[in-house]
Computed example of a mutant assay.
Amino acid sequence: MNTVWPLSRSLLMEILVDHISDRFVCILVWERLGYQEKKDVPNLWVAGSDTSIYWSEKFPEAPEVIAQRVGSVYLTRSIPKEHKQSLKKILGFEGYRIDELYPRRTRRATAVNWLLSWILLQGIDLPEQGPLPALLLTPDNPANGHPGDLPIT
């Protein structure tokens, strides 16, 4: 599978500190799940030939794994048990403080944990550094996210 954006420790950490849009995080997940952007409909990602039946039957269109609970739940369930602690083991991420807990942030952490699991399952190394998109400031209201992020349901 040819992925568009390479993963790195620095990229995953920027996601956790909320410097990257929810949409970009979703795209990182979708491309690794085999979803493909429809050429004639911008921002519409659909199941491709590499998308597993687990995903394509439930989500013919790529699920909003941050904005919608059901997508996040499926993502959580698809992380093998032995990789559930990858955030802590690989990134040293201890989690958010109580006053930082918002569904949006916990779903972003789930997405990062899933990406780490994907790396482990592929048997590839996670480089320290790699390309980063234009970084955003941490949102004033972390419950709502960045301009353009979808509302959380």
Rank of each mutant, 00 (worst) to 15 (best):
S78W: 01
E82V: 12
S117G: 14
A62R: 11
E57S: 10
Y102D: 04
V65P: 02
R77N: 14
L11I: 09
L115T: 06
W45G: 11
A134H: 10
L11H: 10
T51H: 01
Y74L: 02
L126H: 01
E100Y: 02
P103T: 11
E82A: 07
P6C: 08
D125L: 13
Q122A: 14
I90W: 00
L28P: 00
L11N: 04
A109P: 04
D149I: 12
V46Q: 08
R32T: 07
K81Y: 10
I53D: 11
E37W: 00
M13L: 15
F93I: 06
R32F: 04
L7V: 06
R77M: 14
E64A: 08
L101M: 12
R104A: 08
W5D: 06
I15K: 03
L116S: 04
I53A: 13
Q36M: 12
Y54R: 12
K89E: 15
P142A: 07
V65C: 14
R108Y: 01
Q122N: 14
D125E: 15
A111V: 07
T76E: 14
A67T: 04
Q129R: 11
H19Q: 12
R23S: 11
P60L: 06
A62Q: 11
V17I: 15
W118N: 06
P103F: 01
C26W: 00
K88D: 12
D125H: 12
L115H: 08
A62S: 10
G123A: 04
Y35R: 05
L116Y: 08
M13I: 14
N2Q: 10
R107I: 05
K89M: 09
